[in-house]
């Protein structure tokens, strides 16, 4: 492409944005809203994923050891569990420690334990963690088979529910993003269609005097990309600000909440929004030009 052609394309794009300034403004706004919701869901889904992952990974298998197993047996058992596949950590909790914890958890109601006197009904146990949440079931089943193990329990129902919820949020988020992408595409292609329509005489003359399709297409394509990009910038700025405010609030009140830190996460989200905006802008222009250039 020649330099003068590049100049021409940029000049035409700017002129057209200015000439249809209200329409441009409206479409930047709509793109911004769509991309904002898109970004919001992106952030939500990624955070949900992270949260469920972290909750899932916190799911432990409680392995209760039979009372008759002696200290040596306990050590062998620990070694055998540690040697199994997918095990992250194995921690031994003896019955006294377990009682202590139980007492702590009861707090004000420790008197309930008075009835027990000096007897300790709690067994020795192991707290076993696995590398990946989906390994919990198989690991628990395998551990339960070991000699000297009374039972191996984990929060089956909780894990299953978590999986279901995560899946649902991901699915819903993806579906919503898809719908929003289509809506944004529609808005941009309509805006460009209006621009093309406003300039149809010019385009017709360009065709009569022998301009190539690409020469005609470039300014419109660029216009779509600029609209998408500007909308994306607005959406990204608002989202970044909002995330900062909300994150600060969450850290103040729910310190344990596994929110993803701003950097570099927000940069990735911004990049995703801009790329989506520009891509959708380019695609929108291409769609509205396709029919027009055919003739």
């Amino acid at each position: 492409m020649k330099i003068s052609t590049g100049e021409y394309i940029i000049r035409e794009t700017m002129l057209s944005l200015k000439r249809n300034s209200w329409m441009s403004f409206a479409s930047i706004g709509t793109v911004a809203v769509s991309l904002f919701v898109f970004g919001m869901f992106l952030i939500l889904v990624v955070n949900m994923n992270r949260m469920t992952d972290s909750l899932e990974s916190q799911v432990e298998i409680s392995v209760y050891v039979k009372d008759e197993v002696n200290e040596g047996g306990i050590r062998t058992l620990e070694e055998r569990i540690t040697a199994m596949q997918g095990i992250e950590s194995v921690k031994f909790v003896d019955r006294e420690k377990a009682m202590e914890r139980f007492r702590d958890r009861l707090g004000d109601q420790q008197f309930l334990l008075d009835a027990l006197g000096d007897t300790n009904p709690l067994p020795n146990s192991f707290e076993v963690r696995v590398i990946r949440p989906d390994m919990v079931r198989t690991a628990a089943e395998a551990i339960a088979e070991l000699p000297g193990v009374e039972t191996a329990k984990y929060g089956q129902d909780v894990v299953e529910h978590l999986f279901d919820i995560t899946r649902l949020v991901r699915l819903f988020g993806l579906a919503l993003m898809f719908v929003l992408a289509l809506a944004t595409l529609f808005i941009i292609s309509n805006t460009i269609r209006l621009t093309v329509f406003a300039r149809r005489k010019e385009v017709a003359i360009m065709k009569y005097v022998g301009a190539t399709d690409w020469f005609i297409r470039w300014p419109f394509l660029l216009e779509g990309v600029v609209l998408g990009c500007l909308g994306g910038i607005v959406a990204a700025l608002v989202l970044r600000g909002a995330y900062r405010v909300i994150a600060a609030k969450i850290y103040d009140t729910l310190t344990f909440f596994p929110l993803i830190p701003e950097n570099p996460f927000l940069h990735y989200v911004t990049a995703a929004i801009l790329v989506c905006g520009m891509g959708i802008g380019a695609l929108g222009s291409t769609i509205s030009l396709k029919k027009f250039l055919k003739a």
């Binding site: 022998g210 190539t212 399709d213």
Partner: peptide, 19 residues
């Protein structure tokens, strides 16, 4: 279709409504 512009570059077209 992509050769049409080059055909038209060798032609001059004039209309009743000037365009």
């Amino acid at each position: 279709h992509s050769d049409v512009p080059y055909l038209r570059r060798g032609l001059g077209v004039i209309f009743q409504d000037y365009r």
